[in-house]
Amino acid sequence: MNPASFPLPFGVFSVGADRPRVGVAIGDRVLDLAATLGDPVFDHPSLNPFLARGPAAWSAARAALLGALDTGGHTGDLERHLVPIDDVRLHLPIEVADFVDFFSSLEHASNAGRILRPGQAALKPNWRHLPVGYHGRAGTVVVDGTPVRRPWGQYKDGPAGPPHYAPSAKLDIEVELGFVVGAGSEPGTTVTVDEFEQHVFGTVLLLDWSARDIQAWEYEPLGPFLSKSFATTISPWVIPLESLAAAKVVPAPQDPAPLSHLTGTAPFSYDIRLELRLNDHLVSTPGFASMYWTPAQQLAHMTSNGACLRTGDLYGTGTISSWDASGYGSFMELTWNGEVPIDLPDGDRRGFLQDDDVVVVSATAPAPDGGRIALGRVSGRVLPATSGAGLG
């Protein structure tokens, strides 16, 4: 394989009782960057110090790694600093500064509108004019493999009767990408669509855990809150944007044309294909290329009022979905809010997630040599709700 086709994802790992530090995944091994490149910025339990250096430093580190792979292969000095991935523990790769989640798939927004507001317009009037989003909770972003406990919350079982407080009965996930901000911006300034690659270091796979019954009761008029804030799971490896150069595609058409602050000179999206599995069964294959609002437009919108970016900011793209069940990106869509359960090959049926269910999302993207590169995976297992939470 051509070294230029290596995705060279960055993450944080530890071996045994050693202190966590920055590494890069190369096949089934992890390269210790502090030892390899001799730079103390990688001897940290977070990518943030490296990300704060900005795009020139990101490119230089990637070029140094590609040079080492091209000239030395897995021999000599490089070989000494490679650790089998089965021997390491992977950690949350960034200290999350702020977390924002968007709602940017036309297919998902339309499907959700039809499910939740039957007889009404599927899209709200603002949806085609701006990337709708909400400010999430940074402190509950967890790394791949972290179990997620079923949340308690207030909701109604139907339109009649009072709300009650109980464990969510409609636990769901949304298949998303997350984008990691490296270089910040000054308060009171804006970041343009064309400046996306000067601020964003890379992407992760993201599971947006969602309690649909709690969400239905709380989301009007201000949107999701407790139905989302209990957990968000990201993959342990951050794929640099430079690794996705061959995956760039012309974005989906937008009608009406966006306002000038959401318009770039050379707009692009990414041809990223994802797979959603439940308990080892493939249930959906969403594609990112059809997303209505691009990651660059989402970043520009986040700062369009002068709000600043910080190193470690994370923003989710919103559910990646399609017009048919083969690419639905949530169980709310796959089962039409639980009304049409899906049948699994092992004989089980699912409306929403049950305790001990395991969800896994993986992804691939085009490589420069014409093949495809793996972008890793993100997973989570559902734990039962605590007994009598918050009931004294």
Score class of each variant (00 low, 15 high):
V250E: 13
I234P: 04
H261P: 03
E176A: 05
E218H: 13
A169G: 02
A247D: 04
G178S: 07
L274G: 00
K248E: 05
A216H: 14
G182Q: 10
D280M: 10
G188N: 11
P236Q: 09
E242G: 08
A257G: 00
R273C: 00
S260Y: 12
N279Q: 14
A266L: 14
L244D: 00
S229Q: 12
A245W: 01
G184V: 14
V180G: 01
F196S: 01
G264T: 13
T263L: 13
S227A: 15
K248P: 05
A246P: 13
S229T: 10
S269W: 07
W237H: 11
T192W: 07
V204P: 06
A169N: 03
E242S: 12
E275P: 02
T189Y: 04
G178C: 06
D271L: 02
P267G: 09
P253C: 13
F179R: 01
E275S: 15
Y219C: 14
D213L: 08
D213C: 09
E242I: 01
A252S: 14
E218T: 13
L278D: 09
S269H: 10
G182D: 06
Q254E: 09
L241S: 03
L171E: 03
G202I: 08
F179W: 11
S168K: 06
P221G: 12
Q215I: 12
P258F: 07
P224F: 12
E186K: 15
K228T: 05
D255G: 03
T263H: 12
A211N: 07
S210F: 15
L205C: 07
H164L: 03
P224H: 14
P240I: 04
H261A: 01
L241N: 02
D208W: 07
T190N: 02
I272A: 00
W237S: 05
F225C: 07
V191K: 10
L262G: 03
I234Q: 08
I234R: 12
E176H: 10
N279W: 14
E195H: 06
D208M: 03
H199Q: 08
F225I: 12
Y270K: 00
V191D: 01
L262W: 13
G188Q: 08
G184C: 11
V193A: 03
I173G: 02
H199W: 10
G182C: 04
L207R: 08
L241A: 03
V180I: 15
F196L: 01
A246C: 08
S243V: 02
S269A: 09
L274Q: 04
I272Q: 00
P258E: 01
F230E: 00
T263A: 14
T263Y: 11
T233A: 09
A169F: 01
S269G: 13
K228H: 09
A231V: 09
I234L: 10
P256F: 14
S235W: 10
I234Y: 09
H281I: 01
P163Y: 11
P167A: 03
A252L: 06
I239A: 06
L206N: 07
L241V: 06
A246V: 04
S210K: 07
A257K: 04
L274V: 04
T192H: 11
